[in-house]
Structure formats: C-alpha cells, structure tokens
Amino acid sequence: MFLSRKKHSKDFAKDRLKTVLLSERMDCSPQMMIMMKNDIIQAVSKYLPVDEKNVNLRYVAAIHLLDAQISIHNITESERES
C-alpha cells in the first residue's frame, strides 16, 4: 500500500500557525513573508536544486535569528561532475 498519506486537518492547523506566528513574531505582514520566502528560494535556486515544498523559516526572538531550512534535491555524482 503506497497511497500518498492523506493530509490530516491538524497538519493544516500546524502549517497555518507556523506561517502566521512567524509573521507576527517578526512584525512583518504575511504577504511580505511569502514574498521573502520566494526570493530566498529564487536566490538559492541559482546555485542549488531547491526542494521548494520543503523550505521552512523560523524566527527565534530571544536571539533575533531568522533560521531558514532549505531542502536541496539529491545531487547525484553525475551532476556534480558535469
């Protein structure tokens, strides 16, 4: 059975909360956050194959840190050599 896992309602809740809290913690509108995220993806994509669905931004207020986790598609040997 390899049916793709159905997204549960709690996953929507979690994703939505992460986005809205990031925007509120940084005092930056949700629209601006999405634009910034897209710009980050674009910039990194120039150099690496970014897995766009797995890019997570996190803001750590205590140390004023914006932490971006950017998943990269597997870079095979052949691609590295070329």
């Binding site: 549960h8 309602s9 709690k10 996953d11 809740a13 979690k14």
Partner: peptide, 11 residues
Amino acid sequence: IARGDMMTVED
C-alpha cells in the same frame, strides 16, 4: 489526536 484531527502535545 488519534484521527489526526487535533494537534498533539509535541505539535
């Protein structure tokens, strides 16, 4: 929680 319709403590 068991159905995936409520966030867990960890979430």
